[in-house]
Simulated scan of single mutants.
Amino acid sequence: MTAPIRVLVCDDQMLIRTGLVTIIDAQPDMEVVGECGDGGSAVELAGTLRPDVVVMDVRMPVLDGIEATRRLAGAGVQHPVKVLVVTTFNLDEYVYEALRAGASGFLLKDAPPSQLLHGIRTVASGAALLDPEVTRRLVGRFATRIRPVEPAPDDIPLTPRELEVLRLIADGLSNSEIAAALVISQETVKTFVSRILTKLNLRDRVQAVIYAYRHGLAV
Rank of each mutant, 00 (worst) to 15 (best):
P4G: 12
P4D: 13
P4A: 10
V7R: 09
R17P: 04
D29P: 08
G34W: 11
G37I: 02
G37T: 07
D38M: 11
G40S: 09
S41I: 02
A42E: 00
V43Y: 07
A46E: 06
L49F: 06
V53M: 08
V53A: 10
I66S: 02
I66Q: 04
I66V: 07
A68K: 05
L72G: 00
H79M: 08
P80V: 06
V86T: 07
V86S: 10
T87V: 05
S114D: 14
G119S: 04
V123F: 12
A124V: 14
A124H: 12
L129E: 01
D131W: 01
P132C: 12
P132I: 02
P132A: 13
V134L: 14
R136V: 12
R145V: 06
R145A: 09
E150A: 15
A152S: 13
D154P: 09
P160M: 00
P160L: 00
P160E: 00
P160S: 00
E164T: 12
V165M: 10
L168H: 13
L168E: 09
S174W: 01
Q186E: 14
T191I: 13
F192S: 07
R195S: 15
L197W: 00
T198W: 02
L202N: 06
R205Y: 00
Q207F: 05
V209G: 02
Y211W: 13
A212C: 05
G216Y: 06
A218L: 09
